[in-house]
Design a protein around this nucleic acid. Sequence first.
DNA 1: CTGAAAGCGCTTACAG
DNA 2: CTGAAAGCGCTTACAG
Lengths: 340, 340
Amino acid sequence: MKKAPTTLRDVAKKAGVHFSTVSRALNPETRQLVASPVAEKILRIADQLEYRANESAVSLKTKRSFLIGVFLPDITDPFYPPIVVGVRKRLMKSPYVAIVGDAERPVGQERHSLRAMKMRPMGGLVLATAKLKDIFVEEAIAERVPHVQVLQVTAKPASSTVVVDQTRGMSLLVQHLWSLGHRRIAHVIGPQDVSTGVGNLAGFRAAMQAAGAAADDGLIQVAGGDSIEAGRMALEGLLGRRKRFTAVVAGSATLALGCLDAIKANGLACPQDISVCGYNDVPLLDRISPALTTISADTIQVGWFAADLLVRAIEHPSAPPMHIVVQPTLVVRESTVPAR
Amino acid sequence: MKKAPTTLRDVAKKAGVHFSTVSRALNPETRQLVASPVAEKILRIADQLEYRANESAVSLKTKRSFLIGVFLPDITDPFYPPIVVGVRKRLMKSPYVAIVGDAERPVGQERHSLRAMKMRPMGGLVLATAKLKDIFVEEAIAERVPHVQVLQVTAKPASSTVVVDQTRGMSLLVQHLWSLGHRRIAHVIGPQDVSTGVGNLAGFRAAMQAAGAAADDGLIQVAGGDSIEAGRMALEGLLGRRKRFTAVVAGSATLALGCLDAIKANGLACPQDISVCGYNDVPLLDRISPALTTISADTIQVGWFAADLLVRAIEHPSAPPMHIVVQPTLVVRESTVPAR
DNA sequence: CTGAAAGCGCTTACAG
DNA sequence: CTGAAAGCGCTTACAG
């Protein structure tokens, strides 16, 4: 038989006090309202009976929720799960627990998520899915749901954010290629409806400028999505233009893989004919052929910061939003070599 | 101002009925207790007011929960997230929502998860973390929490399970190597406290037997864990014995990567000197050097089945456990070649 | 078919 | 310092 869980009343009966006294004793914030010896006794008995507050009852009464929704663009892209690890790490000793929400692209799905989110009052949200203009974020703001945006952010975020420094990342990449003698550098960039897309492009332009040459718009190609296939098609397009370039900077690791495919499909070789570098490091990128030069960021840290800011936002609703920028590093591997 | 969400009373007032009538009308199972025209009107108004039942209240009252906990050994191992995708897919149109639980190894953490699970009544659990003997599973059974085990299962599971056919997988691998002329085949196997570990080993032995040669115990090495490092050390051990072998079957993709490292570290080459094959396919394995021959299973499907069985278990608590076995396929790539 | 009532397990003013 | 009461938003016997 499934035994009923211990309730406040069970503890109260055994302690010989009223159950509201038990409630006070168990809550650290009201504990001083209870006489010390009584509180101690209650704590002991509660522990012994393995009392756990029923969360539904607490939520119902306090109108607070301890569920933190983490929305990722794609849980199967190995770039994202570390975010969850970081969030979890920060939430470990807190009363909050992370849900991984389904944020798949189709509009229908998003609606579903939104509705699910609204019927299940969330304590807060970590959103890695924001477009430059994002109804999800707008709703969160309108409904006053505490949230923080990570990696991808809206155009002018009114919420706290944790992002990786894109300008710095692009600058590291361009400087690296430049120092290898590359001058004609192509850029396969991700969709321009997300901040990482426009950020990378702006960063690329700024970095080229700083290096001493304006970026050649004829060597910039926006990919149709963040997939290997989109990356391949984008570079095929560039190759088809027959405009010479000796290196290509891709907007993500996924796009970079597509670039490698395009190079191979055109009878060329990386890095001998064209150097390729990606953006965002994921496992096994160091073992593919050629191992990919890329930009790496501590995404566990990003998740940790996000959860930390979120907890603050929940506990101090009126505090102004904070913006954390994490610095990435350059990881040089085999896919970039001196220009011929 | 954060406007209060719509409640049953709001809908009732607007519809001119008692709120209990609204409750009945909104629940498909009790809807026929309400006069059709009234029910229709209520439905319309509820929709218009964007009414969503407060889940805490529902859970508190019914003592049911719509939270499904999915526990993975490691969310950053790309082998596992597809399970979540599958679970989510099945749960999409159900009232349940999946939480990804933290099932990190340290015993302290597990305790934390367990406690979190108990204070937050879960509607059900999908466990990919079961050891042969597993207190987590034992507790779930004792507490009558509906659950299904996936991939890794307890010794004699009393709950529903969804696993990949290990015997078949090992057989495919051994037959493949055998047909390439390999006779002395080593085996680097994962920890033996989980069903996949013992299953793979048993499968390997059976497959060797069936092929016509008993497995040589001197060529079997149990790794200290499921990590690249553990795989490397295991194969180093085998290499150190100076017992000749021309191929090695690893118990996981991760272990296989370690084997590749060990081969390289010993001045040998894969596949020229030793063929290597892994178990479980993950992205990029087709792009590493050499691309890894391995066993692939549809893990999204595994997750889907798991959620399906779980929903059944929740809705029909007395139904007997079911056991689904998914068939894997062999993916031949560059890491296995004919024996010299 | 519908209403009124009880009660799920809590928190938190309000008395004493 | 402690008890008694109200009430969060629901579901579901129980009357009518």
